[in-house]
């Protein structure tokens, strides 16, 4: 996975711009994919590799800014705007909505390439985090209901004895469940388990 070729999407309604960017991106060593409209791009399935989007602001039909709004959840696909006549309000709106750069045509190739490089790095980080979360979720799902109860009480700071009291089971049984939790969650210490619980959003089940 880490070595899969990154994809750079280009959405621009101008054929010259599209073609020139395709060549430049390929020459720089990435995989370009070009689209003439926002709708065409939306029809493309989500890739499982690092990617970014080079997006023209003024597009027929769905505009660049509207497409950006639809992609708001996609932290793994940073957006670089390019525009023939970017005005200030448009730039502000794009940047506020999370674009990583706003380039005015014509732009320097190395500026664009450096920006793409940065965008792909972000994408990689976002994908890694997502993958980690996926693993974490799977681990948590593999716990029995009793183990999940024990985990939430343990991470809220209760001692084994107190956990036993809460659940009406012996301290020995608590210890056994706790060992299972640590193993299944691949936690090497209590602080590690607490961190993972926080990322999963596991809440304390304590009655107190």
């Amino acid at each position: 996975m880490p070595d899969a070729p990154a994809i750079v999407f280009v959405v621009d309604d101008d054929v010259s711009v599209r073609d020139s960017l395709e060549l430049l991106i390929r020459t720089a060593g990435w995989q370009p994919e070009i689209f003439a409209s926002a709708q065409e791009f939306l029809a493309r399935s989500r890739p499982a590799v690092p990617c970014c989007l080079v997006l023209d602001v003024t597009l027929p039909g769905l505009s660049g800014l509207e497409l950006q709004a639809r992609l708001a959840e996609r932290t793994d696909m940073p957006i670089i705007f390019i525009s023939g006549h970017g005005d200030v309000p448009m730039t502000v709106q794009a940047m506020k909505a999370g674009a990583i750069e706003f380039l005015t045509k014509p732009f320097k190739d190395d500026v664009l390439l450096a920006t793409i490089r940065g965008a792909l790095e972000r994408s990689r980080v976002a994908l890694r985090k997502e993958a980690e979360m996926g693993v974490l979720r799977d681990s948590y799902a593999s716990l029995t209901p009793r183990e999940q109860q024990v985990m939430s009480l343990v991470v809220s700071g209760l001692l084994n004895k107190q956990v036993g009291g809460e659940l009406g089971i012996s301290e020995i049984t608590v210890k056994a469940h706790r060992g299972q939790v640590m193993r299944k969650m691949r936690a090497d210490s209590l602080p590690d388990l607490v961190t993972k619980a926080a990322r999963l959003g596991v809440r304390s089940a304590s009655k107190r």
Partner: peptide, 10 residues
Amino acid sequence: NQPLSAIITN
């Protein structure tokens, strides 16, 4: 601007 931009990139 469009063809100009493309020319520079090319």
